[in-house]
């Protein structure tokens, strides 16, 4: 592999990794902090992409970002409403919202399952034309992505250290404590899911605009891919302050994309992405568990061997 090819592969992985890391940061908030596995992520990602695309196509490149985030907040609010006020299990409410969003997304896209943004002005084209005559012009996607990630991380570091942020973290960390404290878990769960889904929507919006099209399946499997990245990030930089952990999460997303891009170079078919991400999630969650069980498994095995003798 020549150096320019490797560099360009690295750049693609970095761009994709950064844009998708916004979803990973969303799960960092909902899954790691709030301890809610939000399965509406796939649908919400597509919702962000669809809403962002429609608004951009109608001529508002910057408004499209806000609209996508707003759509994410609405979706997160409904997921939270189902699980905090209507007695629906948290996994189930994610799945229900995810299913409903499929219809919503097609409706948003005007009944079609594919939208083209080739001639649309998006944040990416705006930045691209601004950088027209500078040496940075081929990095315009990267610049937008870095900016978005930096803003989201800055917000998370600020937010999770506020009193509300601490309350959200306590809700996920020790529900028993929160139950008998003055924190209302319904409120913290709702706020947490709204914020996290805003980032998921943003992530979908940016991915769609960077590749200039939305397809109804753009978000499929996103929750598993993001979880895989989150868990990789956790093994790289899992301890320390929120800032360190958030950076670890972004790093995890990049590592995931890099491995995937390299695997593609070695002729792994593209459709294997979802299998690979599933296997990573399985390994990341099961290995620590099996490690803990290992002494018992080993002893049992040896014990049985002795008995037979």
């Amino acid at each position: 592999m020549s150096i320019p090819v490797m560099l360009s592969l690295g750049q693609t992985a970095l761009e994709l990794g950064l844009i998708c890391s916004l979803t990973v940061l969303a799960l960092f908030l909902s899954y790691t902090m709030l301890n809610v596995c939000d399965l509406s992520t796939d649908g919400c990602f597509t919702l962000g992409a669809a809403v962002g695309a429609i608004v951009a196509i109608s001529g508002h490149p910057f408004l499209s970002i806000l609209a996508a985030m707003g759509a994410g907040i609405c979706s997160g609010f409904i997921t939270a409403l189902l699980q905090t006020r209507m007695g629906i299990d948290s996994l189930l409410s994610g799945i229900i919202v995810n299913t409903a969003l499929y219809s919503v997304n097609i409706a948003v896209m005007g009944g079609s399952s594919l939208l083209n943004m080739n001639k649309t002005e998006t944040v990416f084209t705006v930045v691209k034309s601004a950088l027209e005559n500078t040496p940075l012009k081929s990095y315009y996607i990267l610049i937008v992505a870095v900016l978005a990630v930096a803003l989201v991380i800055a917000f998370l570091v600020f937010f999770l250290n506020t009193r509300l942020g601490l309350a959200i973290r306590a809700t996920g960390n020790n529900p028993d404590m929160v139950k008998s404290s003055s924190i209302n878990p319904i409120f913290t769960t709702t706020v947490g899911l709204c914020v996290s889904n805003a980032f998921t929507g943003l992530s979908g919006c940016l991915l769609a605009q960077s590749q200039k099209s939305v397809d109804i399946n753009i978000g499929q499997g996103m929750v598993t891919i993001a979880l895989a990245s989150l868990l990789i990030g956790g093994t790289v930089l899992g301890k320390g302050s929120i800032l360190v952990r958030a950076i670890g999460v972004v790093l995890g997303s990049f590592i995931f994309r890099l491995v995937y891009t390299i695997a593609l170079r070695f002729h792994m078919p593209a459709f294997m992405l979802k299998l690979v991400s599933s296997v990573i999630v399985i390994l990341a969650i099961s290995v620590p568990y099996l490690k803990k069980q290992w002494p018992m498994i080993k002893r049992r095995f040896l014990y049985r061997g002795k008995e037979e003798r």
């Binding site: 009193r163 601490l166 309350a167 973290r169 306590a170 960390n173 020790n174 404590m177 924190i183």
Partner: peptide, 15 residues
């Protein structure tokens, strides 16, 4: 039961 193990002492107190 009364404190969040994953948060620091000062964060628990702040809460």
């Amino acid at each position: 039961r009364g404190s969040a193990p994953g948060m620091t002492i000062e964060e628990n107190l702040a809460l």
